[in-house]
């Protein structure tokens, strides 16, 4: 253990505002080079969540006053129960799905649009596409994935949703504006004339740690760094995530053994020690996981 570890600050859960579900475990039809939990078609170290498991957590979340529900993987729509899971969730509150957009089916989207109409809550789709062209996207996400994800976007727009496109930055921060404008033009051509775009920082863990250098020992959050820092910027101060192993501190650290806090939501409400390199990225970039409409900037 390094010195930096002992100086790690603890972050308390202020309120469980967002409840996440690792709904397809680590299973994904793609195998992106920057995936922060190394998902792939044969990584089943985390498995699918059943409708029943999700329902149990939804029921428990009522007492805790959870405001919104998020679904991630892997690719959530590889889970055969994904549509019923979302239909059920929309009875409880708003839902957001993080998808790669490549496996969506019109009939599912129609059912989900109906479920959204019945519920009164919003159903948001966040589609990961890593740049406005296949040349930028495909080397990261795989051959033809740009084209396939854009077909997914078209389907979502046709079903009446306004997807949020998220991209992981593989360019310098100064180029953000240029990339965003180009993306707006491209999306408009695919029928999405009201694009909602969000750039995410790269997390140097999982597959990304093998691709790039990973975190070095000085890239850690220290107690001194927390003085005058707005903790609500950190996902772990207002979220938890359910996997097939139990409840973890945040979606980012899923694979770290110390992220598993208990079997039920009630057991997962303890403070967490920010002793991981990824915490350092969270610290620098703030709430990278939530939707803009939910942000509560200080």
């Amino acid at each position: 253990m390094s010195v930096a570890f002992q100086n790690s600050p603890h972050v308390a859960l202020q309120a469980l505002d967002e409840l996440w579900f690792q709904v397809s475990g680590t299973l994904c039809n793609l195998e992106c080079t920057h995936c922060f939990i190394s998902c792939s078609p044969n990584n089943d170290s985390f498995g699918f969540l059943s409708l029943e498991t999700v329902c149990r957590s939804l029921e428990e979340s009522v007492r805790l006053g959870v405001k919104e529900y998020y679904f991630t993987g892997g690719e959530p729509f590889l889970n055969k129960e994904m549509v019923p899971i979302l239909e059920e969730t929309l009875q409880y509150g708003p839902a957001t799905v993080l998808t790669n957009g490549t496996v969506l089916k019109d009939e599912w989207l129609k059912r989900l649009r109906d479920a959204e109409d019945r519920s009164g809550y919003t159903l948001e789709f966040r589609v990961s596409i890593d740049g406005p062209t296949p040349e930028i996207n495909d080397p990261i996400r795989g051959e033809r994935t740009f084209e396939r994800a854009m077909i997914g976007v078209e389907k979502l727009v046709k079903a009446g949703f306004l997807p949020i496109i998220t991209m992981t930055r593989t360019w310098s921060d100064e180029e953000d504006q240029r990339v965003l404008s180009e993306f707006q033009r491209v999306l408009a051509k695919h029928g999405n004339d009201r694009p909602r775009l969000k750039i995410l920082p790269r997390l140097k863990i999982g597959a990304e740690a093998e691709r790039s250098e990973g975190y070095n020992q000085t890239e850690r959050v220290t107690k001194e760094m927390m003085v005058d820092y707005d903790e609500s910027q950190l996902v772990c101060s207002h979220s938890r995530i359910v996997s097939d192993r139990g409840v973890h501190v945040c979606p980012i650290l899923l694979e770290a053994p110390d992220s598993l806090l208990g079997d039920s939501l009630a057991e997962s409400l303890l403070p967490f020690s920010l002793n991981h390199g990824a915490c350092f990225t969270c610290y620098l970039y703030g709430s990278i996981c939530t939707n803009p409409s939910s942000s509560k900037k200080e």
């Binding site: 979340s61 509150g93 708003p94 919003t122």
Partner: peptide
Amino acid sequence: FLWESTTSTHF
């Protein structure tokens, strides 16, 4: 922000 579509009743 408390929007109608993003705020659960139990919250």
